[in-house]
Design a binder for these strands. Structure first.
Length: 419
RNA sequence: GGGGGGAUGCCCGAGUGGCUAAAGGGGACGGGCUGUAAACCCGUUGGCUAUGCCUACGUUGGUUCGAAUCCAACUCCCCCCA
């Protein structure tokens, strides 16, 4: 359909939207809300110390919502994390301890401040923790007031539950309750902040719909749900997972340089889609970049990388990453800004084993892996291929105070002796 | 409570006494081709103080010259019945 609200029009043009519970009504509401502001939320469980690229689309939806003159709410799932969302998982998640959850909460919060403007104004973003209300619920009271609105028959029909059962994977009663708690979140946010929109990945559809139903049944209020497609690369791989693990948004878990590289290594077939989703370049500019062919597409990839990195880590850091990459890949030089690992200077005096060096640099997880890397011809020291697994690194290998180790053509780390 | 089935390396999965660090596949990593792409081809894929040693087939104990494989107990999971 053709949308009239800025928000939905933009999301639609840029390929965000997977499903909407009632797009006509939502479109209208976005244009006619009493004070012109619609409040929408997305919840994030704190199962890891940082969000990753897989969460990015949803964060950007909140950002777009704010840009369109509405109010985003970030819900930190301090309460729901204690239960564990069964959606899209074959097995129960390991339950996290309270301390771990609290720690994760802290490090996740900071990420949002780079994408959203927080404050007290009508369209300023706010952040709340669902632990604030979920932990206070009284079991019997809760069951009587809200549990009666959920039919088990229907709950069983939701993918998060159904798939688990069909695969004969266990689903605990604890997890079974997740959708009820998330539904209650929506109701609570509706009451507290007049929040009428919940967004999320398409795997959240069931949970979102439940919240809308609950709000209607208990308070006779209407609310909307909007989901995005779960992002996969053109080859079908899940976004955000690489060999090293998730592509984290926090720079202490993944360096800005590596984040930039992640986007630089986008497959050709994904460029247009990613530019629309992950940058804020105008569509005609994107159309131009997308139309490039062959090796010229590399230009588009660099623009994608720098734009996407700038949004997450700031323009300056992004440009620095780009310069570093340029020097490393196209200039044939060694940039001093490559990710580096500090080592004890004394190690070089005695001669540090080559294999050990790669392990310290994080380029191999064991001596055996480092050995295989050398034997396979993928290990380089200062750009010179190494064949001898018994070789040592010494002070003589230092160039500008560092030794450049490379595993393959793309992974580079500088070893810096600390004094 | 009763009966049946199951637990193998990152994942899936073969293996029912030695030839098993464990087939095959996926994934991942490295090499080649290229454009830091995809596809394709080749190689690698437990650890170590390394012609050897150690750890590993749910846990513990046993049989045996020898166990992932046989026996016992236990733990956890699934299914069916009540």
């Amino acid at each position: 359909m053709t949308y009239t609200s800025d928000f939905l029009k933009t999301l639609d043009e840029r390929g965000f939207i997977a499903q909407c519970t009632d797009d006509k009504a939502l479109d209208a509401a976005l244009g006619t809300a009493s004070d012109g502001v619609v409040t929408g939320y997305i919840g994030y469980d704190c199962t890891a110390p940082s969000l990753h690229v897989g969460n990015l689309i949803s964060i950007l939806m909140l950002r777009r919502l704010q840009q369109a003159g509405h109010r985003p709410i970030v819900v930190i799932g301090g309460g729901t994390t204690k239960v564990g969302d069964p959606s899209g998982k074959d097995e129960s998640r390991q339950l996290l301890t309270q301390e771990k959850i609290d720690e994760n909460k802290k490090t996740i919060r900071a990420t949002f401040e780079r994408f959203l403007t927080f404050g007290d104004g009508p369209t300023d973003a706010i952040m709340v923790d669902n632990d604030d209300w979920l932990s206070k619920l009284n079991y019997i009271e809760f069951l009587r007031d809200y549990g009666r609105h959920f039919s088990v028959n229907r709950m069983m029909s939701f993918d998060s539950v159904k798939l688990r059962l069909e695969r004969e994977q266990p689903l605990s009663f604890l997890e079974f309750n997740y959708m009820i708690l998330q539904a209650y979140d929506f109701l609570e946010l509706n009451r507290r902040y007049n929040c009428t929109l919940q967004m999320g990945g398409s795997d959240q559809w069931g949970n979102i719909v439940n919240g809308i139903d609950l709000t209607r049944r208990t308070d006779q209020k209407s609310a909307y749900g909007l989901t995005t497609n779960l992002l996969t690369t053109a080859s079908g791989a899940k976004m955000g997972k690489t060999a090293q693990g998730a592509v984290w948004l926090n720079d202490d878990l993944l360096s800005v340089y590596d984040y930039w590289q992640f986007w630089r290594n986008t497959e050709d077939a994904d460029i247009g889609r990613f530019l629309k989703l992950f940058t804020e370049l105008p569509l005609d500019e994107i159309a131009r970049l997308e139309a490039l062919e062959g090796a010229d597409l590399n230009e588009a990839k660099k623009i994608l990388a720098t734009q996407a990195t700038a949004m997450c880590h700031g323009l300056e850091a992004a440009q620095k990453a780009e310069a570093t990459a340029l020097e490393t890949f196209e200039g044939g030089g060694t940039s001093t800004d490559l990710p580096s690992v500090d080592i004890d200077a004394g190690l070089l005096d005695e001669g540090l084993g080559l294999l050990q060096g790669f392990v310290l640099a994080g380029l191999a997880s064991s001596n055996g892996e480092a050995r295989r890397l050398v034997q396979g011809g993928g290990a380089k020291v200062n750009d010179a291929a190494q064949k001898d697994i018994g070789a040592s690194l010494t002070k003589d290998d230092l160039i500008d105070g560092a030794i450049k180790l490379s595993a393959g053509k793309k992974r580079h780390v500088l070893l810096r002796p600390s004094t």
